[in-house]
Design a protein around this nucleic acid. Sequence first.
DNA 1: GGGCTGTCATACCCGGCAGGTATCACCGTC
DNA 2: GACGGTGATACCTGCCGGGTATGACAGCCC
Lengths: 299, 299
Amino acid sequence: MDTPETPDTLRAPDTLETRELRYFAAVAEELHFGRAAERLGIAQPPLSRAVQRLERRLGVRLLERNRRGVALTAAGETLLHEGRAALAATTAAARRTRRAGGADGAGRSAAAPNRLVLAVKAAASHELLHKLLDAYAAEPDAAEVEVLPSGTCEQGEMLRDGRADVALMHTPFNSLAGFDSEELTSEGQIAVLPAAHPLAARTSLTLADVADIPGLPLARWTSEDPGPGPEIHDQTQLAQLIALGRTAAVFPDSARAWLWAEHTAVPLGDAPQIVTHLVWPAHSRSPALARLVRTATAL
Amino acid sequence: MDTPETPDTLRAPDTLETRELRYFAAVAEELHFGRAAERLGIAQPPLSRAVQRLERRLGVRLLERNRRGVALTAAGETLLHEGRAALAATTAAARRTRRAGGADGAGRSAAAPNRLVLAVKAAASHELLHKLLDAYAAEPDAAEVEVLPSGTCEQGEMLRDGRADVALMHTPFNSLAGFDSEELTSEGQIAVLPAAHPLAARTSLTLADVADIPGLPLARWTSEDPGPGPEIHDQTQLAQLIALGRTAAVFPDSARAWLWAEHTAVPLGDAPQIVTHLVWPAHSRSPALARLVRTATAL
DNA sequence: GGGCTGTCATACCCGGCAGGTATCACCGTC
DNA sequence: GACGGTGATACCTGCCGGGTATGACAGCCC
């Protein structure tokens, strides 16, 4: 157009396209152009070119191409972190927009103009959630609330990328950094033991007591968790293993609700309080969300 | 490719390009395709097409085209808000990346691999800032800190769009929502009056006292501020007008540092405490920033 | 009511860039 | 020194972003 030479070095140096970010993120994560291209569903040469153009436009070297693979520079590290946040924000914009327009699942055209997606860690805060939903549904112009079960600790990600509008989180397990939040309840923690175990007779225990019970290792939710305990994947498995005297677990007080007869709950004197928060993106302006928050605080 | 019909309805429905967001935001802000196109530096027809394609891809109506202009739908409102955040995150990624690569101002190629931009409201927290910068500079591997003066209350925006990495903010004037922060100091507020004024003899005042002093209206920083007081643009103007007995002002305690002989400071008993915070984006992972925060807390 | 004006949409064309295939340059390994 | 694996280059093609010209339509004014 006007600048025939170095057409994109001068042009909009702070403006990235999300495609470029997606491409770079793929390379930065795989550290391998071929695999990244495959993951993106494109060929390798266009990917190389796109990253080169990105580096040229930013005027910054993002990758150190050694023979045998690729390494991130400091700038590349920065772009990976910041770019992930930017990509999440972009898809959040898309998701929330389609939701606001009532065009998500099937072809319902303009059925649900306002709806809230609430992310909860599966099976946590049962009672509280029930009360909250009931109270909110009783409000005059309540939005429809979709409860979205989320894996451990990914509620934050769901808020960031727009899969959810609001979440229940539990400190100190979840970090509330970057969100607005309202404290709802606070509860202690209990050790859940086989009823027949000697320690089950105690009226109080400490974390140290249960961390290393001979012959009763704490269960692990993922194989990354340390310790010798059995790896379990859902609460029913865990309940059964405890009932069989094979493991023990630490839970918030409210877990008493689903204990079996073969279980015994013993309070943990020194375990940190678990605080349940209602959490939402700080910039949120949705009236439906505001009403839900108001309902929750008045609970 | 594989779906010859409706090529972009099915393709990546949650993936927006920043160009589309920029275009839509321009239209949504101007509520007029022609002006928006002019602002974007393109012609109107491509802009219309781009927005149409965006609506098609999202499967959502964003604008209500009445004759005589354009109105936002609820979905459009959502996309405007969320899209602004996404655009800010994207340009933040670009800015911080170039900064990390040492390619911002002139052609310095790899001079400053780590640098921090600190946004401060002009002339606020002088002493504190001085102490902080001195203490940080004494650290073993301190980054270079660029102090970026920012207009009233736009530090948050600067953090969001990457112009700054960290900021000094003052509650209750600035909202810390969406950021991580560390409380630094807390101070009361004073009324700054002409020394000759009768009220200057008092040892304490209330907000109500100074809100409506006959013949001594509070100064206004912008024409939007209510009240009959004179509109001023910098601290020197204000100091002079106070010295001349024409206006009064409310300031944090630390403002005593720049008072003139013709000024008198009277504590305000019921004014809220002003708390100065060090604030940074919640997702930040910069070691230089971490060191600055550690220095600040140890102050 | 018939121009007139201002709005957004449509029709058509062009150029650049995204993407593909084929190939090269390079290096470590055997 | 042949080979496998890496990313870069060369070249082609088709889509899409962008421009100009024009249309459809509503309100306004005389």
